[in-house]
Design a protein around this nucleic acid. Structure first.
Length: 415
RNA sequence: GCGGAUGUAGCUCAGGGGUUAGAGCGCCUCACUGUGGCUGAGGAGGUCGUGGGUUCAAGACCCAUCUUCCGCCCCA
């Protein structure tokens, strides 16, 4: 029996893990620059945490959760997103203190039971930012600016940043009715599935790919026309702040997001290199979530950035990341030198120089071949001659040039 | 959950009922017993995704199932 990784999951192999490491470093450095601190939450949580936060009728909760009963009959779910666990931990440990603004970042796997396609997996990863405790558009701008800066730093700038405001919960309820009323005649002629979906979440109609639906929504009221005064003011202010920060964005009334907890600002970054799943990241403001999860009324804003999707777009954009190179391969040119080879390798590693040696008694040629394959910068040859003279032969594997270096000077010579 | 394509060597793929299943790349050995890459010669490596069926005969045809890929839905 040969096993395979479960459907929709992937091994990250040595040939690509350095790309992941690079993205992680960029994101971590950026987050810390803005004063965010890392939070790590468990892989699984109480099922109800997600049911309550994302909305019982949302797709994620409805059909995409990996949930199960554990041996203590607890209803558990693998996390399908990162925000709810972060807020749960924030509340559980009183991170907000007496109303302080809290900045959190994380890197987390998440799980959704979906049919795999381009950029869509059953286990994926996301970088997340949560800025908790500020109602100001300045906070929204900070999150969006960081997101755009992240993409710039990994070499995929110039992406579509789509921005919208969906207002407060009450606003949205009124807007939903208006939208349903506009589409009523179309919905009465369409299939049951489409109708059901529309009634469950009318806003979803807005980003439908179905041409008939799009036609039916032609001339439909815009959510921005329903915004309350404070929402509109904040939205205007956010746009000014983004302009000032040099962030290019497009107003996109069709961006509504799939999770119920969003309020006012929502945004998304898209790319054409992702096929049907063109969303690179998604975020927005969620002013009711903290309270819904049992905390004090606390405004917050955040973003989830898809790691796999960022990598796909980087690949398509030709943004390459060099694999780390081995510094030296220490070769035993004669059998009697094997002890010395191990000793030299150990010294070099202490000095911070990566070193590999042959373990299986292979001959000189085979060892050099290994050195070549591992893309080592230098092969260090040690044989009877070198041992007699207390030297090491340093061979530059790119040029083939060799020079004899005294063992005492070796670390210095390799710098 | 629905639709389409797909699975043969480590990798990329050919073979479309008839001997012992092939190629390129990669790997190992030798030419070259203290020198990698280039060249030449030789070699290893396959339950043809899995299970059933049809047939004198199945890698090939049929059914089921799983994977991967793409689309729908949805989203990162």
């Amino acid at each position: 029996m040969r096993f395979q990784a479960p459907r929709g999951t992937h091994d990250i192999l040595p040939s690509e893990s350095h790309r992941w490491q690079r993205l992680e470093t960029v994101f971590r450095d950026l987050s810390e620059l803005y004063g965010y601190r890392e939070i790590r939450t468990p892989a699984f949580e109480d099922y109800d945490l997600f049911a309550r936060s994302s909305g019982e009728t949302s797709e994620v909760v409805n059909k995409q959760m990996y949930d199960f009963r554990d041996k203590g009959d607890r209803h558990i779910a693998l996390k399908p997103e990162g925000t709810a666990p972060a807020i749960r931990a924030y509340l559980e440990h009183g991170l907000g203190g007496q109303g302080a603004v809290t900045r959190l970042w994380y890197l987390t796997p998440f799980w959704r039971y979906e049919r795999p396609a381009l950029g869509r997996f059953r286990q994926a990863h996301q970088f997340g930012l949560e800025l908790i405790g500020s109602p100001s558009p300045e906070a929204d701008a900070e999150i969006i600016e960081m997101t755009v800066e992240f993409y710039r730093r990994i070499g995929i700038g110039g992406l579509r940043v789509l921005l919208n405001s969906i207002g407060r919960a009450e606003t949205r309820a009124r807007y939903r009715e208006a939208l349903l009323a506009h589409a009523a005649s179309f919905l009465s002629t369409t299939d049951a599935e489409t109708r059901e979906r529309a009634e469950k979440n009318p806003l979803r109609m807005l980003d439908s790919k179905d041409p008939a639906m799009r036609a039916a929504l032609d001339g439909a009221p815009k959510v921005t026309a329903y915004l309350e005064e404070s929402s509109q003011q904040n939205f205007d202010r956010l746009q000014k702040l983004l302009d000032r920060a040099g962030v290019h964005y497009t107003l996109a009334p069709e961006i509504v997001r799939g999770l119920d907890y969003y309020t006012d600002t929502v945004f998304e970054v898209q790319s054409d290199d992702l096929g049907a799943n063109n969303s690179l990241c998604g975020g927005g403001r969620y002013d009711n979530l903290v309270q819904e999860l049992g905390g004090p009324a606390t405004p917050a804003v955040g973003v989830g950035i898809g790691v796999e999707r960022a990598l796909i777009v980087m690949e398509a954009a030709g943004a390459t990341i060099d694999a780390p190179r081995l510094c030296v391969y220490v070769v035993a040119a004669t059998e009697s030198a094997r002890g010395q080879v191990a000793e030299v390798a150990r010294e070099l590693r202490i000095a911070g120089c990566s070193a590999v040696t042959d373990l299986d008694g292979r001959n000189l040629k085979a060892q050099l071949k290994q050195a070549d394959r591992l893309a080592a910068r230098y092969a260090l040859l040690i044989g009877d001659d070198e041992m007699a003279s207390g030297t090491v032969t340093v061979r530059d594997l790119a040029t083939g040039e060799q020079q004899s270096v005294a063992r005492a000077d070796l670390v210095e010579a390799l710098k």
